[in-house]
Design a protein around this nucleic acid. Structure first.
Length: 500
RNA sequence: CGGGGCGUGGCUCAGCUUGGUAGAGCGUUGCGUUCGGGACGCAAAGGUCGGAGGUUCAAAUCCUCUCGCCCCGACCA
């Protein structure tokens, strides 16, 4: 009877991911628009939760939201040499405007004098406006964030993880000194780490990208890297020190206290809808989506249970009362009072959608003034079934709140354990190759001689890349050693993994 | 963009080799009986077989082109 809607992870991880995204009601391929996706209401609700919390954190650190155009003059892109090189191939270009209907078909009319690119990121156009807005050291720091869509014409796409168009936020700031800019870069990286830990229940490692992996146009790129359940890494957020590169390209200058004209020091930082995919692959299981309570659009689903009509009325009205009380306590509650569907079917459906807590309420519970609750992930009891808990109706909101907090913490600990269990220190090339043999991946701390050449050779041999050079206390204690590939001297271990 | 696979009711797929005018299961709708882990009976709706050309008396089936999805590779948040 059970329908295998979701491919087990062990059987085919990539297929499992797609199944969960579909069955969880998160998104589907846009079908008529290559490489793009439709984010469905449940998926968008998760993104809105992410946005709300991040936005609060950005404002708390002094940033203001603004909005810049989707279209960027083609010439802007060329002003920063590294930047163009990095993005040129991924740019969609607008060359014409206007259509005319001819025999029921649309004919493209006027060619534009200067084409526009659809923003793959906004450093250039924001650089242009920063140059206008900044004149004096008194105008600094300028701390701007933009919530927007961007487009990168990717060869290969996967829902949420890499799509032609995606939603994100991009912070752009300008400062009077490099130190101040660096402070900002680290501050926002910490905001991302805190968000990942506290809201997504997703442990991350903070580090610096190698020159090879650096953002096009940045002096330095910092990142947070998360581990998915298959041992692969996913870059969950980035924070860039842009130095004076864009300042020079767009002539963003200010008059210092000494009266001298100086280029500003800029930063940019972003996270995207990719985080939704990260959440799926961090917490999901073979039964479907698992939502951390702090990202769950619905905290609690109530399933009424009854046999006879009089029971049905009593149970349903009790369910509504409970929902009302819980809502008063700030929880989002859904009462699944659909008739004609058995409770078991409802259980499976809401589990697929990742709702953290289910409340079952039936005649027996009414008598006892209690409800049965089931966590989305619960220990297996002696009877071989997932354990349920009975909670008294009195102060139910408080009890549920406590359970949600516990569940949030449980998910983080579980993810952290998965990361720890799949992280290894490796010193021999043979062992290194073994970790990444076949489709395998872990987080590997190994020594590296610091050259791009070796980095690429390792990638060629194993598909593993350097995810980051850890910041202090983000990896094993710093110790000198010999490069795992070349045996040349290395100052510290770096993080290797296959990645998304 | 190179290699491979796949597009047939909402979903999963059969039918294609050997052309004859579309099926199954699940889901959906209605009614009744059910309801503490995926119910059952009866009735019903729903597809110009991804799209466009072509071959043919006749195309889901053969040919050409095209669009999209998935996997591998190169590239990337």
């Amino acid at each position: 009877m059970a329908e295998a809607r979701i491919t087990p992870r062990k059987q085919d991880y990539a297929q499992w991911y797609q199944d969960v995204v579909r069955e969880g009601g998160l998104a589907e391929p846009a079908e008529v628009v290559k490489g793009c996706m439709v984010i469905k209401p449940h998926g968008y609700a998760v993104w809105e939760k992410m946005q709300a919390d991040l936005d609060r954190r950005f404002k708390a650190t002094g940033h203001q939201n603004a909005y810049f155009p989707l279209l960027i003059p083609l010439s802007f892109l060329a002003k920063e040499a590294q930047h163009v090189e990095g993005f040129a191939m991924e740019c969609a270009v607008v060359t014409h405007a206007g259509l005319r209907a001819v025999d029921g078909k649309m004919e493209i009319k006027n060619e534009l004098e200067e084409p526009y690119v659809i923003r793959p990121t906004s450093e250039t156009i924001i650089g242009h406006f920063f140059a206008k807005w900044i004149d004096s050291y008194r105008d600094l720091p300028l701390l701007i964030n933009q919530w927007a869509n961007v487009m990168r014409w990717e060869k290969r796409t996967r829902l949420f993880l890499r799509t032609g168009e995606f939603l994100w936020q991009e912070g752009h700031t300008a400062h009077a000194s490099h130190d101040e800019a660096l402070e900002e870069v680290h501050r926002m990286l910490d905001v991302y780490r805190d968000f990942a830990h506290e809201i997504m229940a997703m442990p991350v490692i903070q580090g610096t990208k190698t020159a090879n992996e650096r953002f096009a146009g940045a002096v330095e790129t910092l990142c947070i890297e998360a581990m998915m359940q298959d041992g692969k890494a996913l870059q969950a957020g980035t924070s860039h020190d842009l130095g004076q590169n864009f300042g020079k390209a767009f002539n963003v200058t200010y008059q210092s206290e000494k009266g001298e004209r100086e280029f500003v020091w800029q930063t940019s930082w972003g996270v995207s809808t990719r985080l939704v995919g990260a959440m799926v692959m961090t917490h999901g299981d073979d039964d479907g989506l698992v939502l951390p309570p702090k990202l769950a659009p619905i905290h609690v689903v109530i399933v009424p249970i009854y046999r006879k009509d009089d029971e049905k009325d009593r149970v349903n009205s009790a369910a509504q009362m409970i929902a009302k009380d819980l809502r008063a306590d700030g929880l989002t509650v859904k009462v699944d009072d659909r008739d004609g569907i058995k409770p078991g079917a409802k259980y499976y459906e809401w589990e697929r959608k990742g709702v953290p807590i289910r409340i079952e309420i039936g005649p027996r519970d009414l008598e006892q003034q209690s409800v049965m609750i089931k966590r989305r992930i619960a220990p297996i009891g002696p009877d071989g079934k997932a354990m349920k808990e009975s909670l008294p109706l009195q102060h139910l909101g408080l009890s549920i709140g406590r359970v949600l907090d516990e569940f949030q913490a449980f998910l983080f600990d579980r993810a952290q354990k998965n990361m720890n269990d799949n992280t290894v220190m490796i010193d021999s090339w043979k062992d290194f190759e073994a970790v990444f043999a076949d489709d395998g991946s872990k987080f590997v701390w190994a020594h590296w001689d610091g050259t791009t050449e070796t980095e690429l050779a390792i990638k060629e041999a194993t598909k593993a890349t350097i995810r980051c050079i850890p910041l202090p206390r983000q990896g094993p204690a710093k110790e000198a050693g010999a490069c795992v590939k070349t045996g040349k001297p290395s100052a510290q271990r770096v993080l290797f993994s296959k990645n998304y």
